[in-house]
Amino acid sequence: MTGWLEIDRGEAPLIVAFPHSGTDIPADYEPRFVSPWLARKDADWWIDRVYGFAGELGATTIRTRISRSVIDVNRDPSGASLYPGMTTTELCPTTTFAGEHLYRDGGPDEADIEERRRRFFEPYHQALETEIDRLRSRHGQVVLYDAHSILSHMPRLFDGELPLFNIGTNTGMSCASALRDAVTAVVAASGESHVVDGRFRGGWTTRHHGRPQDHVHAIQMELSMRGYLQEPEAPDPDNWPAPFAPKAATIDTLRQVLTACLDFARTR
């Protein structure tokens, strides 16, 4: 751990990344936000706790403690949208998912954004590459599993209720089809709703680090939060974040998912 970056090294050919579970806001940034609560509202609340069993499987975990409202380490660093034509938030978001303004002064300028890229974005992805290289040199093949969560209903981003399990492979380009099919089979067997490359096809992590031709397979899981907490109808400072209340069936399915990732990585 280096203060804002937590790395727990395992020896299995699996990395589980948590780019959005952080809630820390550096003291020099906080006064610019409308409120600390808004600046933390869209965190992937408790998602690192959801996968608390990952270390037992021998996985390496990498987590940033910095709030995604400071900088979103799962966006294209150039600022280009990963979902052209769809509503999304920026590299350094200026609104919440619901469209609420985050800043009192309009948001960071180019110099601010560049400073945040150097301070947080680049070290985070360098850490991912370092762990990928370490494990690939040992095993020959590695799976990078990007763990996310979001409220089941987010009208500004998608219609209706999101499936419980949302698998992203950048339309099959970030990992081998065998890995995609293995993970899909696990969630399908759970009987819960699921989709592959639906609204969430994978962010910068899967698109940038996933190189199946080099035996680096990246896959994203966007989990609807109803799988591990009671979602309020409208989040507010009194009810959000909701307490961590994991459903045993959801955790069991995710354990099977990571086990399937390991089985794939160990079978070249």
Rank of each mutant, 00 (worst) to 15 (best):
Ser78Ile: 04
Asp76Asn: 14
Ile25Val: 12
Ser78Val: 09
Lys41Tyr: 07
Asp28Gln: 13
Thr61Trp: 00
Tyr51Cys: 10
Gly99Asn: 03
Thr60Trp: 03
Arg40Lys: 15
Val16Leu: 10
Glu100Ile: 03
Pro26Met: 07
Gly52Tyr: 07
Arg68Ala: 14
Ala54Met: 07
Arg63Tyr: 00
Ala27Gly: 08
Cys92Val: 13
Arg65His: 07
Asp44Gly: 09
Thr88Lys: 08
Gly55Glu: 02
Ile62Lys: 04
Ile25Glu: 09
Leu38Lys: 11
Glu100Gly: 09
Tyr29Trp: 15
Arg63Ala: 15
Ser35Val: 08
Ile62Glu: 04
Arg40Gln: 14
Glu56Arg: 12
Cys92Met: 11
Ser21Leu: 05
Leu82Lys: 04
Asp48Ile: 06
Pro19Trp: 03
Asp76Ile: 11
Leu57Ser: 08
Thr89Ile: 15
Leu57Gln: 10
Thr95Phe: 03
Ile71Val: 12
Pro19Ser: 03
Thr87Lys: 12
Arg40Glu: 09
Ile47Phe: 01
Ala17Tyr: 06
Val50Gly: 03
Gly79Met: 11
Asp72Glu: 10
Ser35Glu: 11
Cys92Pro: 04
Leu82Phe: 05
Ile15Tyr: 07
Gly99Cys: 06
Thr60Cys: 02
Thr96Met: 11
Ser69Thr: 12
His101Lys: 15
Ser78Leu: 05
Lys41Ile: 06
Gly52Arg: 04
Leu14Met: 01
Ile15Trp: 08
Pro77Thr: 15
Ala39Val: 08
Arg65Gly: 02
Asp44Ile: 06
Trp46Ile: 00
Ser81Val: 02
Glu30Ser: 11
Ile25Trp: 01
Arg68Glu: 10
Leu82Asn: 13
Val50His: 05
Val16Met: 02
Ser78Ala: 10
Asp42His: 01
Glu90Met: 08
Asp42Asn: 07
Glu30Trp: 00
Gly55Cys: 02
Gly22Pro: 07
Asp24Ala: 14
Ser21Val: 05
Val16Trp: 05
Val50Trp: 08
Ala39Arg: 04
His101Leu: 13
